[in-house]
């Protein structure tokens, strides 16, 4: 592996950590299990704080995601000699799982953001479906991330 993606991997790691944390904070679990009692973590039980944080992290994730996607597309348009080795590679299996679950999270997440606007009435079953799908995709993403981390599977195989 080259260091080509190092910067964005670091940014992605930070976003993933905080978006997951603020996502799970949407469920009332951190106060029950004393986690928000740890000094400095009290904000985890403040729903409006974690809600705003989840939105901000989601915005950053969308910036990074569209940057990476655009970069990959444009990168392939450069003369072959200029291209980075990694850029020519293909997504691995775990890479696909992660990309698709991220895409799904972005779509379901954004639909829920629309749902949260004033005056928007979604059918009740759709809301439940979106919530559960968002949660399931989150689990798939975290599972694939963990697996790829342990088995040292990169996003892209050269």
């Amino acid at each position: 592996m080259t260091d080509y993606f190092r910067g964005r991997r670091l940014v992605y790691g930070l976003i993933l950590f905080f978006i997951t944390l603020s996502g799970f904070a949407q469920m009332p679990v951190f106060a029950r299990y004393y986690i928000s009692d740890i000094p400095g973590l009290g904000w985890l039980a403040q729903f409006y704080v974690t809600h705003a944080m989840h939105y901000i992290m989601a915005a950053l994730l969308l910036v990074l995601g569209s940057y990476a996607a655009m970069d990959a597309v444009l990168g392939r348009k450069l003369p072959s000699a200029w291209q980075n080795r990694v850029n020519k590679g293909r997504l691995t299996a775990t890479g696909w799982v992660k990309v698709l679950s991220l895409a799904g999270l972005m779509v379901t997440g954004c639909v829920m953001v629309v749902k949260n606007l004033s005056g928007v009435y979604f059918p009740h079953l759709l809301i439940i479906f979106l919530d559960l799908l968002h949660l399931a995709l989150c689990m798939i993403l975290l599972g694939a991330t963990l697996y790829a981390g342990i088995r040292k599977r990169p996003w892209i195989a050269v």
């Binding site: 809600h51 901000i56 950053l60 969308l62 995601g65 655009m70 444009l74 953001v113 629309v114 949260n116």
Partner: peptide
């Protein structure tokens, strides 16, 4: 709920900003 509604705008701008950054990099290159 106002913060959430305001931040929704950031979510609209975000993908555009990301794509613009990649485009900028491409032209510089």
């Amino acid at each position: 709920m106002a913060d959430g509604s305001n931040l929704a705008l950031a979510l609209v701008i975000a993908p555009v900003a990301g794509a613009a950054a990649a485009l900028g990099k491409f032209y510089n290159r």
